[in-house]
């Protein structure tokens, strides 16, 4: 099996602070990779650097696109801005921590979902609407809210709308930055369960950044533990959580309140 994404020696410094220090890993199709660490560990920076939303200082990110006809891997740091934006629209998705950053708050829910379709050339109003409805159902938002503005949605609903907006073009890789941050526990549970189902049914590959071990346990197959910009431990999720080797991982696990 060939990896979907190869990250090699990715580094990013802010002045004297090494936010990411030679991070390397491979992601295979259908895998959910969790990246866990405290605030300031560099995990969000890593995600932004992989998506080239901030420039990395060094390293390489290679994406093996299943939709790419030639089969040639893409060097994310050297493709043009136009190709990168196309990639982000078609094959990748980015779910942000705050739904407001990932949605257009001034247009209706249906338009939010339909935008990526319209970006990729869909020009039939009726079909776009049908597709948007379908996705609202998938993320368990009542379809009669389709013509409402996201500002009238609860936090959990906004997050689910963000999911729908990202998944509508059936991406292969989804990057998620603390997708359940700031939500109530029960709302989190619902969102996580939904994400779990969708990842399985759509065979998505996900890189999930969070500080919440519960989220990791539920969703991730593999886990990277980050501390001060470095990956201190990695392995299968249950491996790292049940048999932590590194001192930082051990203190992280033992600090958790809920088993």
């Amino acid at each position: 099996m060939k990896p979907l994404l190869d990250v090699s020696n990715l580094s990013k410094t802010y002045g004297a602070v090494r936010a990411c220090d030679r991070i390397s890993f491979s992601l295979y199709p259908g895998q959910i990779l969790g990246i866990i660490g405290e605030s300031g560990s560099g995990k969000s920076t890593l995600l932004s650097a992989i998506a080239r939303q901030i420039p990395a200082d060094s390293g390489k990110v290679t994406y093996h696109s299943p939709k790419n006809g030639t089969g040639e891997p893409l060097d994310i740091f050297s493709i043009s801005e136009s190709e990168r934006r196309q990639l982000m629209r078609n094959e990748w998705g980015f779910v942000r921590q705050h739904a407001r950053d990932g949605l257009r708050m001034k247009v209706t829910a249906g338009a939010n979902i339909g935008e990526r379709l319209m970006d990729t050339g869909h020009r039939h109003y009726g079909n776009i609407r049908t597709e948007a409805k379908r996705w609202l159902e998938q993320v368990e938002i009542p379809t009669n809210r389709m013509d409402d503005l996201p500002g009238t949605f609860s936090g959990g609903m906004q997050q689910r709308l963000q999911l729908a907006r990202v998944l509508v073009t059936q991406p292969r890789l989804v990057l998620m930055d603390e997708p359940t941050g700031g939500l109530d526990v029960s709302v989190q549970a619902r969102l996580l369960d939904l994400m779990r189902q969708l990842v399985r049914s759509l065979n998505l590959s996900v890189i999930l950044v969070t500080h919440d071990i519960g989220v990791i346990r539920l969703l991730a197959h593999r886990l990277l533990v980050m501390n001060c910009g470095e990956v201190v431990e990695q392995g299968l999720t249950d491996q790292v959580l049940d048999d932590p080797h590194h001192s930082y991982t051990q203190s992280l696990i033992s600090a958790t309140l809920v088993p």
Partner: peptide
């Protein structure tokens, strides 16, 4: 300006979509 240079005009259709919806 980026959107013009990359021909990313889907957003305009969003406006027309909103009109039809409303």
């Amino acid at each position: 300006r980026k959107m013009h240079s990359l021909s990313e005009y889907g957003a305009m259709h969003v406006k027309l979509y909103e009109d039809i919806t409303r």
